[in-house]
């Protein structure tokens, strides 16, 4: 019998605590498969965020560090500069990366720090129970904008890839989605490139993944995937925003 699929060795063999239909688990698996394929597990150090993915430090079978909310890029910078032979990635949610940690995001991109960032945009604060994120859509309901996000009170959602694309140091920026099977395949390709870039010393690489939080969106997993395609993608168009070949 031929083995056609197995659990990546870069993933610890234990059940994940994410909700049904949550995108975090999918992206974890993709990152682990890529670590296996690039054979970098033993020299990779991952940075886990504050957010639902705080437990990423338990799930990835590589050296891991968990740090303060939003500071992943600074922590990754400290590790990479001290151990350039390591492959360093920071895994972050939208509250983590685009709100409290925006300065670290922008400046690590400006320095073109040779790190890889995986940015999970689920348009909500998952872990704390569904508050408004900097990426929450206009009109979208959250526990801190119960009547829907309004421009007058909350301003506009932040388009991180578009914003970072203004920076010379941001070498590779791509936005993908894990709401469909083809989207998952594309996401894997993008994340693999973001890791390969680091191996090739290209500089700052980030993949923004449009993801789901059915729990805090008050949806079923299927409705959640549809929300990504129908509501999020028009505001956050998929595609490559900067590439090293440019």
């Amino acid at each position: 019998m031929k083995l056609i699929n197995k659990k990546p060795s870069s993933l610890v063999d234990k059940p994940m605590r994410y909700c049904p239909g949550c995108g975090h688990g999918i992206v974890h698996r993709l990152i682990a498969e890529i670590m296996d394929e690039l054979d970098i597990r033993e020299r990779t150090v991952g940075v886990a965020p504050v957010g639902c993915a705080v437990f990423a430090d338990e799930y990835f079978n590589c050296d891991m560090i968990q740090g303060p909310h939003g500071r992943g890029p600074a922590i990754a910078t400290g590790i990479k500069r001290s151990k350039p032979e390591c492959i360093v990635f920071s895994y972050q949610g939208d509250g983590d990366l685009a709100s409290i940690g925006m300065a670290e995001t922008v400046h690590s991109a400006a320095r073109s720090e040779n790190i890889t960032i995986i940015f999970i945009n689920n348009a909500i604060y998952g872990m704390t129970g569904g508050q408004m994120a900097p990426t929450t859509l206009l009109g979208q309901i959250s526990s801190t904008c119960p009547a829907g996000r309004s421009v007058a009170v909350n301003g506009y959602p932040i388009k991180v890839c578009e914003m970072l694309a203004q920076l010379q140091g941001a070498r590779y920026l791509e936005r993908t989605s894990v709401s469909t099977a083809p989207g998952v395949i594309k996401t894997k390709k993008a994340i693999k490139k973001a890791f390969q870039n680091q191996i090739d010393c290209v500089g700052f690489s980030m993949v923004e993944v449009l993801s789901t939080c059915p729990t805090n969106w008050g949806m079923t997993p299927v409705q959640g995937a549809r929300f990504v395609d129908e509501k999020m993608t028009p505001i956050y168009p998929l595609g490559v925003y900067r590439s090293p070949e440019q």
Partner: peptide
């Protein structure tokens, strides 16, 4: 590294000293 803030600086230290 001249960090973007003291917050970033201490977190760079957090990462670097973890090595």
């Amino acid at each position: 590294i001249q960090a973007e803030s003291e917050v970033a600086a201490i977190n760079m230290l957090y990462g670097a000293s973890a090595t």
